[in-house]
Design a protein around this nucleic acid. Structure first.
Lengths: 149, 149
DNA sequence: GTACCTGCAAAACCTTTGCAGCATC
DNA sequence: GATGCTGCAAAGGTTTTGCAGGTAC
């Protein structure tokens, strides 16, 4: 787990700057969406994003959907699986990486504060397989104390 | 990565036995589904399973769907995210564990032959969080040589 | 004989796309 | 002014469920 100390504003600036450099236009919807993603401390679904007033007032569900796709393509957002039917999205800041713990009972998602030993393996995987641009996703699943009872 | 040397038949017997002990009835559909899952060397979707003649001839899509749910509940099958829209299912044999490498270009899924360093962390996560029955899922994503060009 | 499982069919959900109009550069 | 972005609406796929009948125990 690597966390940043940069302020949300700094992160937002970086994100917008990066998107602009990579050919996206700066729109109100993009800013609000990025703000929402940065503010969230856990992965969120498209549906959850659409329920936020700041976003819903600002733009359509289809717009958020397409924006998420563009942001992912530009490397500013990452899409996770997490076992659910809906896709989860998380803001992706340089040098930051999270692993998750998901309850198979209630679906609650927690961030893990572990030092992740997998990052060292990425290089090994690249050289072994010829894949490029490798990143990993690590999740733990189990029953939380509340669901175990 | 831990692999078993047990024969498919042995694995099938274990699976059926386990299911029966946990309250499931032994049906033709269950046997064929387990056979298909054991034979597959990678995670498969519900759609892929339905295209197998041995299964399609034997039972309905809804039956396979519900069976997968029951088998997962009994701990004989595991459902993976893998970023795709459809859920992936994989047979789950004691002492066996796989990590995957997924191409973000073409979607190809490869098994990784790595010694996974995460298993040692599971105990730590359990004691830190109070979660029980913990397992993990680790995937690497990147572009395969064919898609990189 | 009872409880569980299966098929068929329909509903529910989330994702994805077409197109005309609007905003950004 | 040209290109990309947005809204609205509809289509596409996968998952999920109800119910009547069949099957394992």
């Amino acid at each position: 787990m690597h966390v940043t100390n940069d302020s949300p504003e700094t992160q937002l600036d970086w994100a917008i700057q990066t998107c602009r450099e990579r050919g996206l236009r700066r729109t109100k919807a993009m800013q609000e969406l990025l703000r929402a993603l940065i503010a969230s401390d856990r992965p969120v679904t498209l549906g959850e994003l659409c329920e936020l007033d700041a976003l819903a007032d600002q733009c359509d569900r289809a717009t958020i959907y397409r924006l998420l796709g563009r942001l992912e393509e530009k490397g500013v957002v990452r899409r996770l699986g997490l076992h659910e039917r809906a896709a989860y999205y998380v803001f992706c800041y340089p040098g930051e990486h999270h692993d998750y713990l998901v309850c198979t009972g209630c679906g609650k998602i927690e961030l893990l504060g572990l030092e992740c030993p997998v990052e060292a393996l990425e290089k090994e995987v690249m050289s072994q397989t010829g894949f490029t641009g490798i990143y990993h996703e690590l999740e733990f699943f189990g029953r939380c104390p509340a669901c175990a009872g």
